[in-house]
Amino acid sequence: MTEAALEIRSLRKAFDAKVAVDDLDLDVRAGELYALLGPNGAGKTTTLRMVTGLLKPDKGAIRVFGVDALKDPIAAKRMIAWLPDEPMLYDKLTPLEYLEFIAGLWGVDPKLAAERAEHLLKLLGLWDNRDQRCEGFSRGMKQKASLAGALVHDPKLLILDEPLTGLDAAIARQVKNLLMQKVSEGATVILTTHILEVAERMAQRIGVIQNGRLLAEGTLDELRAAHGDGKDTLEDLFLEMTGQADEAELA
């Protein structure tokens, strides 16, 4: 049986009266790319922020590779990298200094970290900019530097929230290639995206969430079999499942 990279059980989070995540159960297998989809305000980011330790759940359980992330958050965090839609960068640091800082936070051996940093910056086309401060970077370059930061400690579980937002086609391709490469090397990737073609092409399994609850989960074929006529695109299925099909037609 495949090891579970992430197990979420009865997870709940409310902000005052608004329930963002409502008794959510979710399983992500090790070594897969899992796309978490949902309309705006569905609870995707809230769920992932709870997994990464940025938010405290009201109740429920989160296990990362068998480690209870709520009881032993440090051990869980060692295995996780979080990449939000807004890059977590320091404007006055260079990409290399940023990676050195992150390597220090995760306690990566400096020699190994330096090698990884060079590899990642070259792979993402930032090596020539390694001595420039991030403040002058475009959004795409910042996103790439942030992605390099997420990968420099070689996480087992990479969680990305809208990683392709605002990127041009070439940079988006680079990011997608790198994610696929990490999956092929055995890492687990969870991403949220509103670009359904990305999920359709890249994800091994897809979860659809709405009002904090999981509506459906499975491979694209499984979703088609359960919710469509077998030929539907992911967009058709998504709009049908979330009840937005009529809305989309009207538009």
Partner: peptide
């Protein structure tokens, strides 16, 4: 968020 996500 980077510091909160870090294993420290």
């Amino acid at each position: 968020e980077l510091l909160t996500c870090a294993p420290v």
